[in-house]
Design a protein around this nucleic acid. Structure first.
Ligand code: MN
Ligand code: MN
Ligand code: ZN
Ligand code: ZN
Lengths: 145, 145
DNA sequence: AGTGAGAATTAGAATTGTTCTAAAGTGATT
DNA sequence: AATCACTTTAGAACAATTCTAATTCTCACT
């Protein structure tokens, strides 16, 4: 199918373009995130990829995730002091943290909302990023996550 | 002056009202947050209050902060995986994290903005809180923080 | 004022998530 | 084949926070 091949290409290009190697570990970690987009923690990614590469180490998973985030292929999200979660959705979006289930949902942002929100900043404040986090109860799971 | 006496009263009332004791440690931790509203970490609060009560322990500072947050007298804020910071500003506000200085600034929210932002949630999502975090470079320090 | 039960504080151990270190592996380049 | 940079790996180290168990304090009740 197109999606996975396409994103694989993007991955390879981005890594090459930065002088980084497209190792099996990096590819697998990325694939895993793309395949199950439920904002897993590093430990969860580790558990998922072990079946494909049983020798992979947790340190490598952390290394790969860090690389993917640094190359802009993946976003990291934090809720309070919980473990960092990883998200392959590159569209501008907010996060909804369901306090009952612990699950995290992507919320698409209407065009222009981030700019509108930046509007509340007093003069002199230059925001390079805006993050919006909702907490509460989500209704029907309807899909993965 | 009115402010400190007033907030001290609020503190005492809230603690009493929950069957909690207004201990010197709790009062001091709260005072310290009110006096220097720069979003200190627990360690920073610890360092600040030690001069008044040299025997206070870090565990107690954590305990007091947790109590204050639980009673709604103080908010906790997190940036990525950094240490939790504490904020006595109870008005609805966003946070601006200055990436150069590491300082944190409160950004007042225009009335109705949070409700407006909640508007982007699909049906079935019920948000109990919305958090907005800016990251970037702030201009003039102009005051404390 | 004195007592006792529960609440709070304390120091230090334990826990969690993450990063660091040092050694071994990989693969292109000479 | 030797070299070199990059990567992976296991385990140690680390930072922030929470837990534990002992002690101290508070305060309602005598
Ligand atoms: Mn949660
Ligand atoms: Mn920072
Ligand atoms: Zn996401
Ligand atoms: Zn604040």
């Amino acid at each position: 199918m197109a999606t996975s091949d396409n994103s694989r290409q993007v991955l390879l290009e981005r890594l090459q373009g930065s002088g980084l190697r497209p190792t099996p570990q990096r590819e697998l970690v990325f694939q895993s995130l793309m395949a199950q987009r439920d904002h897993p923690t590093a430990e969860e990614v580790f558990a998922r990829v072990k079946s494909q590469i049983p020798s992979i180490s947790l340190a490598t998973v952390y290394n790969c995730l860090e690389t993917l985030v640094a190359r802009g292929l993946v976003r990291s999200v934090n809720f309070e002091r919980g473990p960092t979660r990883y998200c392959p959705n590159l569209h501008p979006h907010a996060h909804f943290h369901d306090e009952e289930t612990g699950s995290t949902h992507d919320i698409d942002l209407p065009d222009g909302l981030l700019d509108q929100v930046k509007t509340i900043l007093p003069p002199g404040y230059d925001a390079s990023s805006v993050e919006i986090i909702f907490r509460g109860k989500a209704a029907q799971p309807a899909g993965d996550n």
